[in-house]
Amino acid sequence: NMTTNERRVIVPADPTLWSTDHVRQWLEWAVKEYGLPDVNILLFQNIDGKELCKMTKDDFQRLTPSYNADILLSHLHYLRE
């Protein structure tokens, strides 16, 4: 019986294949993992993996503070390698 913190996010390895639900799961995981403040996951609700991967730093900064944008982008970049 796992707690929420221990729950593994199971999403496709390639972020471009993510559904909007996968994006939400990834964001929820990242918020907990990195202790990100002020991430409004609802702002990302219509973004799927293909859109997420096209987003620039400016795009991320429209949805979340700069600090969060940096961490989310670097993790996304890591996943795409």
Rank of each mutant, 00 (worst) to 15 (best):
N1G: 06
N1L: 10
N1T: 12
N1Q: 11
N1P: 05
M2N: 10
M2S: 07
M2Y: 06
M2K: 06
T3E: 09
T3H: 07
T3F: 11
T4R: 06
T4M: 15
T4K: 10
N5T: 08
N5P: 08
N5Y: 07
N5S: 07
N5W: 11
N5I: 13
E6C: 04
E6R: 08
E6H: 12
E6D: 08
E6Y: 08
R7T: 12
R8N: 13
R8S: 07
R8M: 04
R8A: 08
R8I: 03
V9S: 15
V9G: 15
V9R: 15
I10S: 15
I10V: 13
I10K: 15
V11M: 14
V11E: 14
V11I: 15
V11P: 15
V11R: 15
P12R: 04
P12T: 03
P12H: 03
A13K: 09
A13C: 12
A13W: 07
A13R: 13
A13Y: 08
A13G: 14
D14G: 01
D14N: 08
D14T: 03
D14Y: 01
P15K: 00
P15C: 03
P15H: 01
T16R: 08
T16D: 07
T16H: 15
T16G: 10
L17D: 14
L17A: 10
L17C: 13
W18E: 00
W18N: 00
W18Q: 02
W18D: 00
S19A: 05
S19F: 01
T20N: 08
T20L: 05
T20D: 05
T20M: 05
T20W: 03
D21F: 13
D21P: 02
D21E: 13
D21S: 11
H22I: 02
H22K: 04
H22T: 03
H22N: 14
H22A: 04
H22Q: 11
V23P: 01
V23T: 05
V23C: 03
V23Q: 00
R24P: 00
R24W: 02
Q25P: 00
Q25V: 12
Q25D: 09
Q25W: 07
Q25K: 11
Q25I: 11
W26R: 01
W26H: 00
W26M: 00
W26D: 00
W26A: 00
W26I: 00
L27Q: 01
L27D: 02
L27K: 02
E28T: 10
W29I: 09
W29C: 12
W29G: 15
W29D: 15
W29N: 15
W29P: 00
W29Y: 12
A30N: 05
A30H: 07
A30K: 07
A30E: 09
A30W: 03
V31M: 11
V31T: 12
V31I: 12
V31R: 09
V31A: 09
K32G: 07
K32C: 08
K32R: 09
E33F: 10
E33N: 09
E33H: 07
E33Y: 06
Y34E: 05
Y34V: 03
Y34S: 04
G35R: 10
G35Y: 06
G35H: 14
G35W: 04
L36S: 01
L36V: 04
L36E: 00
P37H: 12
P37K: 14
P37M: 12
D38A: 05
D38H: 09
D38Q: 09
D38R: 06
V39E: 08
V39F: 13
N40V: 03
N40F: 03
N40M: 03
N40K: 08
I41L: 10
I41M: 09
I41Q: 07
I41N: 06
L42S: 12
L42E: 11
L42C: 09
L42R: 14
L42M: 12
L42G: 13
L42A: 12
L42F: 06
L43N: 10
L43K: 14
L43H: 13
F44L: 05
F44A: 05
F44H: 03
F44D: 09
F44Q: 05
Q45I: 04
Q45G: 10
N46G: 10
N46C: 09
N46A: 10
N46E: 13
N46F: 06
I47W: 02
I47R: 02
I47T: 04
D48H: 04
D48N: 12
D48R: 05
D48G: 07
D48V: 03
D48P: 04
G49K: 00
G49S: 01
G49D: 01
K50D: 11
K50M: 12
L52A: 01
L52T: 00
C53N: 04
C53T: 09
K54H: 08
K54V: 04
K54F: 04
K54M: 12
M55D: 01
M55T: 01
M55N: 03
T56R: 08
T56D: 11
K57M: 06
K57Q: 06
D59Y: 01
D59E: 08
D59S: 06
F60T: 00
Q61A: 12
Q61N: 09
Q61C: 10
Q61E: 14
Q61S: 10
Q61L: 11
R62H: 06
R62T: 06
R62M: 14
R62C: 08
R62V: 09
L63R: 06
T64Q: 06
T64F: 13
T64L: 10
T64P: 02
P65D: 14
P65M: 13
P65E: 08
S66H: 07
Y67K: 08
Y67N: 15
Y67V: 12
Y67W: 10
N68W: 03
N68S: 12
N68M: 06
N68Q: 14
N68R: 04
A69C: 05
A69E: 01
D70H: 11
D70F: 03
D70G: 09
D70W: 03
D70L: 04
I71L: 07
I71R: 15
I71S: 06
I71A: 13
I71F: 04
I71V: 14
L72I: 05
L72E: 01
L72V: 02
L73A: 13
L73Q: 06
L73G: 05
L73D: 06
L73W: 10
S74V: 06
S74A: 13
S74M: 07
S74E: 11
S74T: 14
S74P: 03
S74D: 09
H75L: 03
H75Q: 13
H75C: 05
H75W: 00
H75G: 06
L76K: 02
L76E: 01
L76Y: 01
H77K: 13
H77Q: 08
H77R: 13
H77L: 08
Y78R: 15
Y78K: 15
Y78F: 08
Y78N: 15
Y78C: 13
Y78Q: 15
L79Q: 11
L79P: 05
L79W: 12
L79K: 11
L79M: 15
R80K: 11
R80F: 12
R80P: 11
R80I: 13
R80C: 15
R80S: 07
E81A: 10
E81I: 06
E81N: 15
E81R: 10
